[in-house]
Amino acid sequence: MSKEGPPLWDQSKKKYMDRDVAINLWKEVAAECNTTDIIAQKKWKHLRDGFRNELKKECKPKFGDAQGSPCKPQWKWFKNMEF
């Protein structure tokens, strides 16, 4: 999934609520990933939820870290989901 399918992830888009558009886009995603649309949707939900959980975590400096140093998310897919 990428920035190219905003109706699937961007709730501010008009077509986000259009089920026909979403169904067709999920079929495209599934075909590209060699899976079914149901599995693609479940994997997307897992990625989205993981990203939200990572955003919720508080950045607490570890012992010995300089104050104010930016914290780095530990989840390996975080950077890919920052769109």
Rank of each mutant, 00 (worst) to 15 (best):
M81K: 05
F63E: 15
C71P: 01
K45D: 13
F83M: 12
D18F: 02
P6H: 11
N80E: 15
R48T: 07
M81G: 06
E4G: 06
N24K: 09
K42C: 10
M1H: 13
D18G: 06
T36L: 03
G68E: 11
N80A: 15
C71G: 07
F63K: 10
F83R: 09
G64P: 04
L47D: 12
V29K: 04
C59K: 05
W26R: 08
K76E: 12
I39N: 14
R48V: 06
Y16V: 10
M81D: 09
N24F: 03
D37F: 04
A30I: 04
R52F: 06
T36S: 15
K76I: 01
M1C: 14
C71E: 09
M1T: 10
D37C: 05
K27R: 10
Q67Y: 03
P7M: 09
P70W: 05
K62E: 15
K56D: 15
N80V: 05
E82C: 09
F78V: 00
D49S: 11
G64T: 05
D20W: 00
P61H: 01
A22V: 02
Q41G: 14
G68D: 12
W75M: 06
G68N: 11
D65R: 05
S2L: 13
K13A: 10
K13W: 03
K27S: 13
S12Y: 02
G50I: 04
P6M: 08
E28W: 00
Q41P: 01
G68A: 11
K57M: 09
I39K: 14
W44N: 03
K72T: 14
W77R: 15
W26Y: 09
K45E: 15
E32L: 03
C59I: 02
K57A: 12
P7K: 11
M17N: 13
I23P: 00
A22Q: 08
T35S: 15
D37I: 02
E32N: 07
K42E: 15
D20N: 08
R48A: 11
C59A: 13
K62A: 15
W9Q: 01
W44Q: 03
G64N: 07
K57E: 14
K57V: 04
F83N: 10
Y16A: 13
K15Y: 03
K72P: 01
Q11V: 00
W75D: 14
A66D: 14
N34S: 14
F51R: 08
P70Y: 08
K76P: 12
L25G: 04
R52V: 10
I39P: 01
M81S: 08
R19Q: 13
K62I: 04
W26H: 07
K3V: 02
K13D: 07
K14P: 01
D18K: 04
K72Y: 12
W9K: 02
Q41I: 08
H46I: 05
P6L: 10
E4F: 02
S2Y: 07
W44M: 06
G68K: 06
A30N: 06
S12F: 01
E32P: 00
K14G: 08
K42L: 10
I39Q: 14
E58M: 09
L47P: 00
M1N: 12
W75K: 07
A22Y: 00
L47T: 02
K76A: 12
V21W: 00
C59D: 11
F83C: 09
A40V: 04
L55S: 04
L47A: 12
A30Y: 02
G50D: 12
